[in-house]
Design a protein around this nucleic acid. Structure first.
Lengths: 153, 153
DNA sequence: CTCGACAAGTGGACGAGATCGACCAGACCA
DNA sequence: TGGTCTGGTCGATCTCGTCCACTTGTCGAG
């Protein structure tokens, strides 16, 4: 993970479809060597995938909400996590240090869907209480911050 | 935005580097027509970009936290938003319906950086109070949920 | 010091993919 | 009926991806 790798990562983070040839021009190497580096970054788990970024509203997922989960004392976290994972509307799931030990980011088409989703989450064994906040607008999301510093491989 | 477009979007969402030729095979069209569709999806703002997914820990951003902001009555939201945007560590920023009217997702290398960041956010005019929660683990993040339904263009 | 092993790049060759223009078929409407 | 528009195919061409052989520099062992 040297400076060139960092540049490659930053470029691919900003535009995941940049060709190897273009990356090569940017970092001053040839395409095969860049490809070699990218392959290594993928194998080492630094680059874990590539995604098209979609406008949620444009595909009918107009409502974004954050759901906090307060567990009861008997909560089996493995089970909770598994059941949460089975719900496709939950796009992100964080395990937190606090009273609300999970926070979910969910997207649904309509308010009715959100209500059903909240009931579904609330019905999971070990979930004592949920707290839902609607997002009025997303100012920005998943903005890539540059690789901060030299990092061991 | 017909069924074929939905398939294309779902495929690119899962692997943003899928070639036009491969997409064409999957949806049963030729490469040029798929390319045409993708270009239109980009122009219509449905596909807004492509990103490599990076393991934050692997690049030295080992700490993820959620920061809620409670504003005071005189808060100028345009100004707050602008100042927040200038802070690179804030990867996502949601405007919420609730007492905490913003929630930030931030990533930093070390605890000291988080402390400095909290102070920086707390010092923004119009910010009455912040509430920070550390994430112990990210169960998953930005999992693409399939396009739900036929949607007008 | 020299040798061999290894990591990282280069250059060339070849097949696959991207891209462009020309052309075609069906839908819609005056 | 005929014109136009949309969305597709086909074929040509150029770029890109990918593989392989070769080179260079580094480092440790003998």
């Amino acid at each position: 993970m040297d400076e060139i790798d960092q540049t490659i990562v930053n470029l691919l983070r900003t535009d995941g479809r940049t060709s190897y040839a273009e990356l090569a021009r940017r970092v001053g190497l040839t395409a095969p060597s860049v490809q070699d580096r990218v392959t290594k970054l993928e194998k080492n788990g630094i680059i874990t995938g590539y995604k098209a970024v979609i406008d949620s509203e444009a595909i009918g997922l107009g409502i974004t909400a954050l759901i906090g989960i307060i567990p009861d004392n008997a909560a089996d976290h493995r089970d909770i996590c598994e059941r949460l994972r089975a719900i496709p509307e939950i796009e992100s799931c964080y395990f937190l240090a606090g009273v609300e030990c999970y926070q979910l980011k969910v997207r649904v088409p309509k308010m009715g869907d959100l209500e059903r989703l909240i009931h579904r989450v609330g019905a999971i064994p070990g979930v004592a209480q949920t707290r839902t906040t609607i997002t009025l607008s997303t100012k920005w999301e998943d903005r890539p911050q540059p690789v901060p510093f030299e990092q061991a491989d």
